[in-house]
Amino acid sequence: MTITVITLLKRREGMSREDFRAYYESNHKLIGEKVLGPYATRYVRRYIAPIDGVDEGHDYDVVMEIDFPGEAEVEAFFADIADPETAERIATDEAKLFDRSRIRAFRLEREERSDL
C-alpha cells in the first residue's frame, strides 16, 4: 500500500518565484533526495502558478509529494529527520527558502471511483 504525504510550502518573504524555484531545485532538493532515499519511492515538487496571475500572500508556491511503500518507511523516515543533526541541517536550509511558519503537511487518504 502506497502512502502519500504532501507538504504545502510558501517561499520566504522577499524571494522571487524564479529564485525560489532555482534554489529549491539546485540545493534544497538534494537534501530531500538524500534523507528520503532509503524510504521513499517518489519525490515530486509541483510549483503552483495562480491561473489569474495574481500572487496573493496566502498562496503557497509548491506542493511537495512523497510516496512511501508502507507505514514502516513513513515511521522510519520521520524518526530519521527528527535526529537533531539532520533536523538542524534541514531547518537551516529551509530558513533560506521557506516561510517555515506556513509549512503544512498532510497524509493523503484515497478513495477511488469505479464508475468513471
Rank of each mutant, 00 (worst) to 15 (best):
M1G: 09
E33W: 05
E88N: 08
D61R: 09
E112T: 10
P50Q: 13
I66A: 12
T4A: 09
R104G: 01
G70V: 13
S101T: 15
E111A: 12
K96C: 10
E88D: 13
V63T: 13
G37F: 00
K34D: 05
A82H: 06
K34R: 15
R102N: 04
K96L: 05
E73G: 05
S114G: 08
R46F: 04
H58L: 10
I6A: 04
E56A: 15
G70S: 15
E75L: 14
A87N: 09
M64D: 02
I48G: 00
S26H: 11
G14A: 07
D115P: 01
D93A: 00
S101V: 03
E33H: 12
R107L: 11
F78A: 01
R21F: 01
N27H: 12
Y24E: 10
I66P: 06
E33N: 13
A79E: 14
P38A: 08
R17M: 09
V74E: 01
F20G: 05
E56G: 11
L9C: 11
T7V: 11
D99C: 05
N27S: 15
A87L: 01
S26E: 08
V74Q: 07
H58C: 03
V35I: 15
E112V: 09
S114D: 12
R110I: 10
R107S: 09
E18W: 02
I51V: 14
E109S: 06
P38L: 07
